[in-house]
Write a protein that binds this DNA or RNA. Structure first.
Lengths: 343, 343
DNA sequence: GCTGTTATTGAAAACGATTACATCAGGCTC
DNA sequence: GAGCCTGATGTAATCGTTTTCAATAACAGC
């Protein structure tokens, strides 16, 4: 290799290049960068040198030496689920404010990917983790030994080795049932997802609320996709029509199912709410625009993300404190899709 | 500090603990971990030791020494925009397959945040970056000197210092105009976002297509939010009604604007498509469910994400190759919202 | 003028891995 | 059997920072 070639080879500039440029030691440069005690004169010289050289610190080196990653992990099932999309924004905003970075992982409800990403979190030495585990992983999580605090979201822990923040699912489902009942509906069908603990809790609330009104519960469970919901509802209504026991309303446990149900009413030519009232979860922007507007439970999505971060920071402050479970309640956004039996 | 306290303090186990446990040198452990040349006997001993100690490599140290981060950056305006949500999944899947991690950043179309995240990417020493810049940043990007390859998505570069993958926006907009024209609409208004180059290109296609049909173009530009679109459309239609020049159709340049327009028709009591035909971009699941179904351009979102990663990997393979611009075309999904002047 | 204290600064160790280089054993060729 | 290669292993340098520790200077108190 000739010298000219060597000269051409780009060498990333490091802290010692800045130190040389400023005529100080690397320690001083480091102190300037981290607002340590440095005289004004040297500080100015160093800042000039940083600008002149275009120096950018190497985060890997910094993390290695200082032993904190300033990184928090966020593991969700699928970022395309609007609930998690919103939560991730809240988490990222909070992290940003605290000068931290976020690593986002999608598991597709696959326990193997969950395990792999948990390993990754260890290797990244994350400061903390916000996690929406599947039921399977949730059960094993107690045994795992992790070197960082974990806050569970959406899916809650049974006992409580971990902090968590969840919606009051039974209450929210009851809110929906009560609203339907108040509007005059008496045969209220329920369609629930079959993978998450969330759906289980919502089903429980649905059942309890119906019982309180002296009504009969008719629930079915399907994979959490619009297609599965559409097919199941079509089948269900066909059976019901034959047996002469058509429901006059249906509530579902998440927005994908809601979409499936609306689709089904279209292909079956059913009017909402005339032939069938519809209510569901997650107040996404489009629910206002569909048919007469869809009645939904609005989750405080941003609040959930923020609460998770707050819990995480408080835990970092005091690792010994008792674990807490923050339960936020949803609100019922009544729209035309549950317009009442007369209307 | 007494010895007992010292013993209690948890010390993260490192590669040398594994080496001691297995009775080998740290180099051998490292080689086992990276599939280097090691005898089967020692390999087994080391693997046992790794299991026994629960060792997890420190990625910061690994990255510092080996000088590659195995990380790619993804900077978008807002992950809640379904287009970017879908792209991010595609990017993450491709990265995962290649054994790389993704750092996701939201800029909210704010150039300051873009600049800040670009700095972060440098500090993280990312292997490459996939970036959807605002117009402002795009203009300055040529001057920035970045130590990693960049692939632009959605918003394209004018000349070509960077690889990019974009939708054929003029063609897509023309597709929409042609469809509206074929359905009998002649006064076709256009509402476009005012921050991205995407909107500029779509506007150009809209105008050209109208001109080709001998029609007059009436376009307005608004901030890319549903609220802004709703307000502007309401104002616009009120003016038009006074002047007796009501458009019979309106096309918009993205899904947020589309939502705003639909909202406006509701509050104004306009029927779709009877009083006003509506067409837009992005075939999101809910567009099928709104009113008579909304006519939209479907972008190959997953393809776009994958193509961006492919471009990035090819660039890493050969830094000297000529830059390329991958242009994918959208398809027109015709629905009831453009049902025709008679129907 | 001497000592003690405090504020700046620099030299060098440390963080936890990878990797260049040296070593060594064993098998091959002639 | 000498010489040479090959493949496995260990030693130590290295990556780019932060941080500890010692050194120096300035200044107050006596």
């Amino acid at each position: 290799m000739s010298d000219s070639v060597k000269a051409i080879s780009i060498k990333a500039i490091g802290i010692k290049d800045v130190a040389r440029e400023a005529g100080v030691s690397v320690a001083t440069v480091s102190r300037v960068l981290s607002n340590g005690p440095v005289s004004d004169a040297l500080r100015a010289r160093v800042e000039d040198a940083v600008r002149a050289t275009g120096y950018r610190p190497n985060l890997s080196a910094r993390r290695l030496r200082s032993q904190h990653s300033q990184t928090i992990g966020l593991i969700v099932s699928d970022i395309r689920n609007p609930f998690f999309t919103a939560v991730s924004r809240a988490v990222e905003d909070a992290a940003f404010q605290a000068g931290m970075r976020v690593i986002l992982c999608n598991t597709d409800e696959n326990p193997e990917r969950e395990a792999m990403y948990l390993r990754l979190m260890q290797e990244e030495r994350v400061t903390g983790l916000i996690f929406a585990p599947t039921r399977a992983t949730l059960a094993q999580l107690d045994r795992a030994d992790l070197d960082f605090p974990v806050v569970l979201i959406d899916r809650s822990a049974p006992a409580g080795r971990f902090d968590s923040v969840v919606l009051d699912n039974p209450q929210a489902a009851a809110l929906l049932v009560d609203h339907l009942h108040a509007q005059g509906y008496r045969r209220i069908a329920g369609l629930f997802g079959n993978t998450s603990t969330t759906a289980v809790e919502r089903h429980a609330g649905y059942q309890a609320a119906l019982a309180a009104h002296g009504l009969h519960a008719e629930a079915r469970f399907v994979p959490p996709t619009a297609e599965a919901a559409e097919a199941e509802i079509a089948r269900w209504l066909a059976e019901a029509r034959r047996s002469g026991a058509m429901p006059d309303a249906v509530m579902v446990s998440n927005s994908l199912l809601l979409m499936g149900v609306v689709k089904a009413t279209r292909t079956l030519g059913l009017a909402i709410p005339g032939d069938l009232a519809v209510a569901g979860f997650d107040n996404e922007p489009w629910t206002e625009l569909v048919g007469p507007g869809l009645t939904v439970i609005e989750q405080p999505v941003h609040e959930i993300g923020r609460a998770a971060m707050t819990l995480l920071f408080e835990r970092l402050d005091d690792p010994e404190r008792a674990t807490r479970k923050v339960v936020l309640s949803g609100t019922c956004v009544a729209r035309g899709s549950t317009g009442g039996v007369s209307g």
